[in-house]
């Protein structure tokens, strides 16, 4: 499905990602966890072509390295970016339609209905300006917008930031549904506990490198990971 081979990204002389190798299988839900500045966001940006990276991004066996972002979106990758980045002066509905930009859209109507079914809150706010939504509502909108293109690979960057616990558990249900449909999900999360609980596998990033990888279930039991990312000492019980 998605393979990142020896991916590196520098901002000027500052390295943000250093030789990352990551795999996401079809229908697999994979987490990238790590401290602030570990390189999670930079990795996702490189996958979408928002930053120029070295190394290779391969989707379904096709190298995307020469393709600009619009072509990568067309190829089936979409991103719910860190910090939401909704279009503030446009209505919720228009924001959703913009999620379809790179695709043909005879089914636009039914797709927006699908999103409203997933996020009833957005339905209530359909004609409201996105900029006037609450932070959590904007987050839902960013996720829904990314889903509009029916991506093969959905990348979520800090999607739970600002979301109420009930919406977070709803998001987990949505991720489960996507997985069942065969959509792959790459989840970058500060909240390691949540990320490990709802993913199949995870990569722990430190300073732009993979420090650890494995099944999420196992990583969440790993003493070092627990100490560093789950705020739990070795002897602690949850």
């Amino acid at each position: 499905m998605l393979e990142l081979r020896d991916l590196s990204l520098n901002y000027g002389s500052i390295p943000a990602v250093r030789g990352l190798t990551v795999r996401v299988g079809p229908g697999e839900v994979v987490a990238l966890i790590g401290a602030n500045g570990a390189g999670k966001t930079s990795t996702l940006k490189a996958v979408l072509g928002l930053e120029n990276a070295k190394g290779s991004v391969v989707l379904d066996g096709v190298a995307l390295d020469k393709l600009p972002t619009p072509a990568r979106v067309l190829a089936g990758i979409s991103l719910s970016p860190e910090g939401r980045h909704v279009f503030p002066q446009m209505s919720v509905e228009e924001n959703l339609l913009l999620g379809l930009t790179a695709r043909t859209r005879p089914q636009a109507g039914s797709l927006t209905q699908e999103m409203y079914a997933l996020f009833p809150r957005l339905y209530e706010r359909a004609s409201q300006k996105a900029g006037s939504l609450s932070g959590g509502e904007q987050q839902m909108l960013a996720i829904a917008r990314a889903l509009m293109s029916s991506p093969k690979l959905l990348m979520l960057d800090e999607p739970t930031l600002g979301l109420a616990p009930i919406i977070v558990s709803q998001l987990r249900v949505i991720i489960g549904t996507l997985k069942a449909r065969g959509t792959s999900v790459l989840l970058a999360e500060q909240n390691a506990e949540m990320a490990l609980a709802c993913t199949d596998r995870a990569y722990v990033l430190e300073n732009g490198k993979v420090a650890k990888e494995g099944l999420s279930r196992e990583l969440s039991q790993d003493p070092a990971v627990r100490a560093a990312y789950l705020g739990l000492g070795e002897g602690d019980e949850e």
Partner: peptide, 23 residues
């Protein structure tokens, strides 16, 4: 039109427009 919507999207946020795949 789609063009018009994309144009307004770029006016509001270059970055968000790139994210959704607008050229």
């Amino acid at each position: 039109t789609n063009f018009g919507r994309s144009l307004r999207a770029v006016a509001q946020s270059d970055y968000a427009a790139k994210v959704v795949g607008i050229d």
